[in-house]
Design a protein around this nucleic acid. Sequence first.
RNA 1: CGGGGCGUAGUAUACCGGUAGUACGCUUGCUUUGGGAGCAAUUAGACCGAGUUCGAUUCUCGGCGCCCCGACCA
Length: 423
Amino acid sequence: MRQSALFTKTRREAPADEVAKNAQLLVRAGYIHKEMAGVYSYLPLGLRTLNKIVQIIREEMNAIGGQELIMTALQDKDLWSRTDRWDDDKVDNWFKTSFKSGGETGLAITHEEPLTRIMTEHISSYRDLPVYAYQFQNKFRNELRAKSGIMRGKEFLMKDLYSFSKDDAEHKSFYDKARAAYLKIFERAGVGDQTYVTFASGGIFSEFSEEFQTVSEAGEDTIYVDEEKRIAINKEVCTDEALAKLGLEKEKLVEKKAIEAGNTFNLGTRFSEPLGLLYTDETGARKPVVMGSYGIGPTRLMGIIVEVLADEKGLVWPESIAPFAIHLVSLGKSGDDISRIADALYDDLVKAGVEVLYDDRDVRAGEKFAESDLLGIPKRIVVGKEAVETEIFEVVNRATGKVSKTPRAELFPSEGGPASGRV
RNA sequence: CGGGGCGUAGUAUACCGGUAGUACGCUUGCUUUGGGAGCAAUUAGACCGAGUUCGAUUCUCGGCGCCCCGACCA
């Protein structure tokens, strides 16, 4: 895309009402717009980035047998009353509203109840199990205090997958697959090294749940990490008893600040029993379905990646989730030789299937470079006088700052091998 | 929800009981052209309501909104 056609602008100064690094940089770079406290819109660059994250998650969920659907935001009060999760005493962060025709509704905080009910129409025999279903959907949580930019909002995108299994053994087998898939997602999103499976409170469902915690100073949680085993335990549940149960030694643990990037729960029959999700087994006996739920917030993950990878110049995206693979920066003026070379390179890169943001504006070089750094696209190709004379282009790696001189032909994805710059 | 702070141009900020200044941006002209350049001109502003006062953007109260600490965080 030509940058001259991009409607968003960058800002030199951070907004006065944001303290979190992720929100400051994303607003400055024009990726997001703050609508209200804890409520953000995703502008073209932000949406492209978010969609990359969503697609990685989708691929990994599909790979373990997940089937994608989408449920409603508006929720049925009666349904939630049946699992005792409607009253504000029980769940205090509902956004509730009413129908003009009478009766209450609420905006979904999560989707165990509606999906369990849906499954009662589709699961009746052991032959129908297991089933794995997931969605990407905006969740609404009426937080008393939104904070940390896009990492803890009142409206945010969530990937939630639910598993429906015959028994604990079948559930456990899938649960382990889901854990592995989650680790792969964080790996692909560029924060694998910093992300640990972390034992945490299971809330009202189970003794423990597993959180996926990404180490960062911006984190709200404190975890104790065992670097060797690459697992951690949340401070909230870190007792001698828990450590013994998990086989962790106190001396080997290192305290870190971390952000919860994902969470998986063993739900057992907490929802299937009250909502009547039963199946008939081989012997003709009626049994409740064993459930699990698995959440990752793509918008939060986007914030985490900013927190972990950004530097003093601005955003730094891994290739896998950057809004564009290449930032092509022309230092020419429209109509001159430099511009013609840059235009031709842009056209050829697009034809080759490379996602390019082309800074074709008549703006000074310094401003273009500063903006390019802020936007955080992994590779910058600079077209200056040298390129006109030699067909050799300057390629700058945003993360490392390394500059390399590259002949035109090598700017294109190679046949067969790993495509450089291709996404 | 407890405590604290703050609302001034598109953005970031300053001063003041006598209707507001700066920087960036925007628009225009000239210069400049590999790290947010320079000069000049232009454009544009006191969250809402009530009160005190001759006069309120400034003081008081209420509302709304935003931020921070804590609590909370299926």
